[in-house]
Design a protein around this nucleic acid. Structure first.
Length: 155
RNA sequence: AUGGCAGGUCGUUCUAUCGUGCCGGCUUUAUAAGCCGGUAAGGAAAGUCCGGACAACACAGAGCAUCCCGCCCCCGGAAUACGGGGGAUACCCUGCGGUAAACGCAAGGUAAUGGAUAGUGUCGCAGAAAAUAACCGUCUGCCGAAAGGCGGAUAAGGGUGAAAACGCGAGUUAAGAGCUCACGUUCCGGCAGGGCAACCUGCAGGAAGGAUAAACCCCGGGAGUUGCAAGACCAAAUAUGCCGUGGCUUGAGGGUGGCUCGCCCGAUCACGGUGGGUAGGUUGCAUCAGAUAAAUGAUAGGAUCCUAUUUUGCAGCAAUGCAGAAUAGCCAGACAGAAUCCGGCUUACAGACCUGCCAUUUUU
RNA sequence: GGCCCGUUCGUCUAGGGGUUAGGACAUCAGGUUUUCAUCCUGGAAACAGGGGUUCGAUUCCCCUACGGGCUA
């Protein structure tokens, strides 16, 4: 019996925000559906940190905040499906390991946030480099959400 | 033993921590969360080159067109696909036979291997001529003193070409020629024999015909069309709207995606103008994978394999080989990720192992 | 995912068994002009890769690579 399993039952869950104590990345935390992704491409803001470009939309909602993310690698630069899968898995893992603080701010600000991470480099990079650059984009997103929240509260 | 070629088989693994999809069970506030258990990508999952299952249209019918295939037998297979084994035929190469040539025999290799006497087309350049052959040459008639000119016959020789009108010898002849004959070659139909068959052998007779069908074509065989984005269900929306012209059971139009017929539905019609709405999900989708912006992973450490370097021991004059250890090698380091499923083909591939053949070296 | 089509000078294209692989724009050289542009003359420059059929392949057949289209 692992020791961490004992305190899990006490945590409060919402449907959109699973247990934040665990660094899991469930199916419902992933962005899916043609409409929402098309909306992201049409009217999303973008931020680029060398190998990763982030598209995001943050919209305030009255209920508790929600977060959904998607990961993409263009097939034009990586012809083989194996390479695309590898890079998507690395990005997803980096997001999974470092999402906790972002989730806290989202829940506090009560925004519905969707984000997509696109790998734009031409060569395969190791996990550590992808993780550090993905962290930069996450910090940016976090700052933007906090800024919107303070602007809303000032009103 | 080493190297090369061909074919075949295989194509990592363990531990810890944190995680993912699906299925089952339990608990709670029960399509959610947590826990437990099970399960989870290849030999090509790839290319989409074939075939089948399955689905819709008549449980898919006829004709034309179009497309594909093409030696025989046996085994596997749903199969006229494909694979394996054996054989037939043609060609290539080596050796032997043949004075030489055509050709025959033996070993090996290759073949999308029905038909070129059913017809049509094409065969550039060169060459006289590329399929009703006369440039030089040979023989010969007439004219002429001669040089030569105008004719005729002739496919033996020359040169050109990828290919030149069956091969070779003899006879005949003015000169020659399958014109005739011997030995051969190929083809045609007939008879006899052998073989399950493709086909082979023999006999007598006839013929001598260039190549090309992955040119049109003819013969034989096969294919109905479209494809899981098929199709089914739920939800949402609903306008068969309005105006003009034509049509309305004596059949417009559609199903029907090459055309005609047939079959089915049958006024939900056609053309022009005008003007709105919807387009989300489930299933199809599993028999020990069943995802859907698409799960099967990340990090850390180890083992084994391989490569390189260093080093120790043994063998050897040496080159070097064998055995062991250490270190290093952008993640076991190659090709590569299920998408309805199955069978075949093709292509990509680090390394290991097995089988066969060839070459070299050493020992007996 | 499925079904199709294409690849020819630097670019856009013609050619569908025997060609000196043609044309336009671009480019280079020369001429015209005081100079530049225009114009004239000339040159260089290509059949995606591999195999097969054929005497001969850019063309016909097969495989591979790359590019593009249609399909709810």
């Amino acid at each position: 019996m692992p020791p961490h399993a004992a305190n899990d039952n006490k945590a409060i869950h919402t449907s959109a925000m699973p247990n934040p104590a665990r660094n899991s990345l469930r199916k419902m935390e992933r962005l899916h559906g043609k409409k929402s992704i098309e909306a992201l491409f049409r009217s999303g803001s973008s931020y680029t940190a060398s190998p990763i470009r982030m598209l995001y939309i943050a919209r305030g909602i009255p209920d508790a905040g929600s977060m959904a993310a998607a990961f993409s690698v263009p097939s034009k630069t990586f012809k083989n499906a194996v390479d695309r899968n590898l890079l998507k898995r690395r990005m997803r893992e980096a997001y999974r390991q470092n999402k906790t603080t972002l989730y806290d701010t989202v829940r506090k600000a009560k925004v519905q946030c969707t984000a997509m991470f696109i790998y734009i480099a031409k060569s395969k990079l190791p996990y550590s480099e992808i993780e550090s650059k993905l962290l930069v984009t996450l910090h940016h997103l976090q700052k933007r959400i906090e800024h919107e929240e303070s602007a809303d509260s000032a009103h």
